[in-house]
Structure formats: structure tokens, C-alpha cells
Simulated assay, not measured.
Amino acid sequence: MFSDTSRTAATALAVATGGAVGAACRYQMWRWWPDDAMHFPLTTFAINVAGCFLFGLSIGAIPDGDQDSTAIVRAFLMYGVLSGFTTFSFFAVQGVTLTSPRMGLLYLALTSVLTVGAAWAGRACGWVLSTRSSRVGRHAQ
């Protein structure tokens, strides 16, 4: 068991480390598939939709308990890696700076709808997986 002070420090370190991992992954994806101001920013769009799905999946699959290890893993993954990976501020800038205002509005609307839908779907999938693993664990006992 951690003390409150060491739990807070461990959680902060987990979030910072995860944020660095997520941001590095996002940066590498842009290097492989750079967005273009003339076209729909597909890489940023895909990052945000996938990140929101995985965030929702984590909410559903990783219990929100007081166990130190679970809380730190959850903080590392959700508030570190996935929050560093997704790109809300960059999404907003791209939406208003695209050469075509219509493309900008389409991008902002599609991203908003699909990322919220992806987070919801991920949460539902995580809940199903968590429930299924709980049932399997009970049958094995």
C-alpha cells in the first residue's frame, strides 16, 4: 500500500510518462502520414477517433477502484498515454485553418460526432469485456 503522498507522486509520474509516450506516438504517426492543409486532415482525425475509442474501452475495462496498482495503470493509460495521443487543441486549429472553410466545417463536425461515438462504443466494449472476464473467472473457481 502506498501512502497518500507516494500514491499522488506515483500517479503524477505515471501520467507524465504516459503523456510522453502518447505524444511521441502521435508525432510518429504524423511523420509517417503527414496532414496537408489543402485536404482533410485524416491522420489527426484517425488519431482522435481511435484515441477516444481506446479511452472509452479503458473506462469500461479497467475498474475505477482504489487499488493502487489499478489506479496507477488507469492513470498511465487514460490520462497519460491516450490524452497525450489525442489532439484536441490541434484538431481545433486544423478545423479553422484549413484552406477550404467547407472542409474545415466537415472536419470539425465529423470529428466531434465520431470521437464521441467512438468513446461510447469503446466504453460499451470495455464493459462487455470486463463483464465477460468476470463471468469466466467465476466459472473457473
Rank of each mutant, 00 (worst) to 15 (best):
N48V: 03
Q67T: 08
I72D: 00
P41N: 03
F55E: 00
C25D: 07
G95M: 05
T43H: 07
G22A: 11
V21N: 03
G18M: 00
T97G: 05
N48I: 02
A92D: 05
G22Y: 06
S6W: 12
I59C: 12
S6Y: 06
C52D: 01
T44Y: 06
V21F: 14
A16Y: 12
L77A: 12
Q67E: 15
G60F: 01
A37W: 10
F76R: 01
S83F: 01
I59F: 11
T111P: 01
S3A: 08
G80I: 00
M103I: 10
I62V: 15
F53I: 04
Y107L: 05
A119P: 00
A109Q: 02
F55L: 15
G117Y: 03
L57Q: 06
W30I: 09
W32L: 14
A14G: 05
Y27S: 15
T115I: 05
F45H: 03
L42W: 14
W33S: 13
T87F: 10
G19H: 02
L114H: 02
P34K: 14
S100T: 04
D35I: 13
F85H: 03
M78W: 03
D64L: 13
L42V: 14
F40C: 02
I62A: 10
H39K: 04
F85I: 04
L106Q: 14
F88P: 09
W33T: 06
V116Y: 11
P101C: 10
A24C: 10
T99K: 13
S69Y: 06
G65M: 00
L108C: 09
G22N: 08
V113E: 09
L108Q: 10
G65A: 08
V73H: 05
A23P: 08
T97I: 06
G104Y: 10
T8M: 14
C25P: 07
V81R: 02
Y79R: 08
A16N: 07
D36I: 06
G104A: 11
D64F: 08
Y107I: 03
H39I: 03
